[in-house]
């Protein structure tokens, strides 16, 4: 397996002293992040179950004995790292980025929907189809029924920057209807939109899995957990819940790289990327900014242009 041999080589050459990558998880459809030294190389895997965004695991990791921390980077991990660099959360020289092209990742929530309670123990890919199997069942479905919605509309399967690359980097992919999910909601009348979001967020149990999996929710104390002031209530009251999600969308606006971690992590299957995608489009159209592509550019919410559009202001 090229992955393991290449990583071993990097350890041996002293390019990296440790590595953040993926290992087999306890559930068959979701790999888990692992933090290894040379001895752990054989645990490494990379396949369509490696959805977790690894960038967050880099935060506050310092090089050990002067040796860099290696990290396996799909497009979205790499873009998150670039965003970290603009936010002063990382030193470029502490990290060794190992690029890898992403085939698109499975969304466990979508799988769960399809298998209706049965336990998947194995999967197999055949071109554009994926066959799921478990105790007494087998189900073959098109790839797009099981992949993370974020992956299906991903334009950047490879990280924009890397120190080495496993396989060959893929160019930017042109996506026709990147904002289809957003547009679908927008085509509804306002009252129906409200009803939709009310029922969607009404399911939220405030477990914060979305926040905890998000590479950009790296605050030590999240605003929602603060007192003085207590920004909002912490219970499962609907307005508090909605506002929590709205503020999270605002806080990640201009930063979110649509890795889809939040949505995959949500135990209630709430379509969380609707809000972030809506913000992404606004930032792109209004401020001409796409997160995670440039280290030099100031993030849009810390910048301005004198001629920013202001059609909404009287």
């Amino acid at each position: 397996m090229e992955l393991r041999s290449r990583i071993r080589e990097l350890f041996q050459k002293g390019e990296i002293g440790s590595l953040i990558g993926y290992g087999r998880g306890t559930l068959p459809l979701s790999a888990r992040p692992i933090f290894i030294t040379e001895g752990g190389v054989d645990q490494l895997i990379f396949d369509i179950t490696c959805g977790v965004n690894l960038a967050k695991y880099l935060l506050r990791k310092k090089p050990i004995a002067g040796q860099k921390v290696g990290i396996i980077c799909k497009g979205c991990d790499g873009r998150a790292i670039i965003q970290y660099l603009t936010e002063g959360q990382l030193n470029r020289e502490d990290v060794y980025i190992i690029g890898i092209s992403c085939p698109g990742m499975i969304d466990p929530n979508r799988v769960r929907e399809k298998v209706r309670g049965r336990v998947v123990t194995n999967y197999q890919m055949n071109g554009e189809e994926i066959t799921l199997s478990g105790d007494g069942f087998q189900l073959t479905l098109p790839r797009e029924d099981l992949l993370s919605r974020s992956c299906l509309r991903c334009r950047y399967p490879s990280p924009p920057i890397y120190d080495t690359f496993i396989g060959s980097p893929k160019d930017r992919v042109e996506i026709q209807d990147e904002y289809r999910s957003v547009a679908e909601i927008e085509s509804l009348p306002a009252a129906e939109r409200w009803n939709y979001f009310q029922s969607e967020f009404g399911r939220c149990i405030r477990c914060y899995a979305c926040r905890n999996s998000c590479p950009f929710c790296y605050c030590d104390v999240c605003f929602v957990d603060q007192t003085n002031p207590q920004w909002f209530g912490k219970g499962v009251e609907l307005t508090d819940t909605i506002i929590f999600h709205l503020v999270r969308a605002l806080h990640t606006a201009g930063r979110c790289v649509d890795c889809g971690s939040c949505e995959r992590a949500c135990p209630m299957g709430i379509k969380l990327t609707l809000l972030s995608k809506r913000m992404e489009r606004e930032v792109r159209e209004r401020f001409d900014y796409i997160p995670g592509l440039s280290v030099e550019e100031t993030p849009p919410m810390a910048a301005y242009r004198e001629d920013d559009p202001q059609e909404f202001i009287q």
């Binding site: 959360q89 790296y218 993030p299 810390a302």
Partner: peptide, 21 residues
Amino acid sequence: PLRCQGCGYCVSVCAYAAVEL
């Protein structure tokens, strides 16, 4: 300081260079 993550947005938006990391 216990809440600050050092992202530097405050530094960028200050017109007076009053904030530093």
